[in-house]
Computed example of a mutant assay.
Amino acid sequence: MRAPARREQLLLVTAQLAVEQSFHAVSIEAVAQRAGVTRAVIYQHFDDLQALLEAVVDREMSQAQEQVTPTTPTDLGSGAASDILLRGLAAFLTAVRDHPRTWRLVLMPPEGAPELLGRRIARGRRTVLRQLAVAVEGGLSGSAVGDAELTAHLLSAISDEYARLVLTDPDRFSPERLLEHARWWLAQSSFGM
């Protein structure tokens, strides 16, 4: 296996081990055993366990950012607000369903997660919340929405909880069911105006 492919395999194995068992279960030996390689192969790609974990966090958080950025509404004034929000939610839930490993790390960090993961998650959340607040304030000024920052927090919390349901019980909580609920909720709120 060529070096880039081997590195990718090691990152994937490490992330999967963390999601399935916790970060406490991740060791050079455990990764080597699961990947079917020697410890020396891992050390050819990473200086130590910390470097491997940091590379996993960088990889997964970059993927999460790439997946969530196009789903975050930026201008609720460019059409029916509820339709824009539902399109963004649909895209987000599809990304969660299609990339469960990444989103388990982001939305349900396993025990023993490195501090770096927590910092990167917090930074990503702040970015999404800022974008949502701008979208809410700009698109719904003069409406009954109220505080754009609080509304952004509420929308983010709902989206995150829907995503956790997709991850933990996809048979009961399909994206389609959750979108139908979101459509009903939005109709009850000022977004349905």
Rank of each mutant, 00 (worst) to 15 (best):
A133H: 04
S174F: 03
L107A: 03
W103H: 12
L179I: 06
D98W: 01
G124E: 14
E149L: 00
R101D: 14
D75Y: 05
D98S: 05
I158C: 10
E180P: 00
S143P: 09
D160N: 06
D75A: 14
D98T: 06
L129G: 04
L129F: 03
L129Y: 08
V134S: 13
V96K: 00
E161A: 09
P114E: 12
A91R: 03
V96R: 00
V136A: 14
T72V: 15
P170A: 11
P175E: 02
G139D: 10
R164G: 05
G139K: 05
A187D: 01
G146D: 07
P114R: 09
S78K: 11
M108Y: 04
G138V: 02
T94K: 08
R177M: 13
V96D: 04
A113C: 12
V136Y: 11
A148L: 04
S78L: 09
S141W: 15
G142M: 07
G139E: 07
D98Y: 05
A81N: 08
L117A: 08
L116Y: 04
L154V: 02
A122G: 10
G142W: 10
D169C: 07
H99L: 08
H99E: 12
H181E: 12
A81Q: 04
R164L: 08
G88W: 07
W185K: 03
L186Y: 02
